[in-house]
Design a protein around this nucleic acid. Structure first.
Ligand code: FES
Ligand code: FES
Lengths: 158, 158
DNA sequence: ACTTACTTGACTAAAATAGTCGGGTATTGG
DNA sequence: CCAATACCCGACTATTTTAGTCAAGTAAGT
């Protein structure tokens, strides 16, 4: 199993996308600034997210990304799968052949754990996360910090 | 989070230790053969397991390792912790400071997932695993395969 | 003594991660 | 048309981690 910054960044970026504006597309440059993620790295991640149809893109000036579906129907497990190849903890990808073609002693344990993790992450949607109190306040902070940083005159909220 | 062969090997080896003989210590050479794990690598892992007092060692000929406690009181999470540095999935080791000293958008999600995984693995003891039907039959198979391989005359079961 | 088997530390090859870089291409506003 | 914006794509790289080897011990039994 791998759960590293790649998957964390993907979920963070998708959540940022969910929070900011449903009418106008959100550019990667914005996400990069708000979430402190390298723009080039985001491009790499969004390439995969688009292939998995979790987002749709709009090219050209004023372009960016939209969610591919309603935030209620996008689950965290799908996002991680899209960039991270799954949350499988077995050594054999569930095939049960890691000891020279035979099943190993601990296969059933890892298989069970994998299901546990998958069920947990598949029960949480982006909409669920947005509704959390802590997420709301952190998002608020991030927007404020960015306004101070840019000292831009336009204070229009989303 | 890391859950790779290192942690899997450690749990597998500990389970092998639990299954085979509670009176005589079990040598790493035996475990190496039964579980197809490199002897040198096992030495590395058991060094850490001993430091965490999950096993005790007996030196000299006929030596090997014993469980440090009753198998009912050794939980999978402890074994993974001992070799693997924890099953934490946050980027900040729970400190909540991964975005330049401030908490990031998804911290609470990873924190919750970490607890979920830890609770799952901390609720399963070595004794629980030994009692599983599939574990019993796989252990049986491993012993038989080894007897055929060695063509050793002593057929005395544990 | 001699052998077995644990103990320790340093070393290494291979893989994965976490990016960067340099070019594209589509779209829009002037 | 032209230039700017922003997505798109593939190749490249430094660093870290994993998975494992190797060598030189030390302790204990026969
Ligand atoms: S992990 Fe599936 S057979 Fe070993
Ligand atoms: S993961 Fe803990 S603050 Fe980001």
């Amino acid at each position: 199993m791998r759960l590293t910054t790649k998957g964390r960044y993907a979920v963070t970026a998708m959540l940022d996308l969910t929070i900011h504006c449903d009418d106008k597309p959100v550019s990667l440059a914005e996400i990069s600034q708000r979430q402190s993620i390298s723009l080039s790295y985001l491009e790499q991640l969004f390439s995969k997210l688009r292939q998995s149809e979790l987002v749709t893109s709009v090219r050209g000036p004023g372009g960016g990304y939209h969610l591919g579906r309603a935030s209620e129907n996008i689950f965290i497990a799908e996002i991680i799968d899209a960039v991270n190849e799954s949350v499988d903890t077995t050594n054999c990808q569930g095939k049960g052949d890691c000891q020279g073609g035979e099943i190993c002693l601990t296969h059933s344990l890892w298989d069970q754990l994998s299901h546990e993790i998958h069920n947990f992450l598949n029960a949480i949607s982006l909409a669920d996360l947005v509704a959390r109190r802590d997420v709301k306040s952190i998002a608020q902070r991030q927007v404020e910090q960015l306004l101070i940083l840019n000292e831009s005159p336009q204070a229009g909220a989303c």
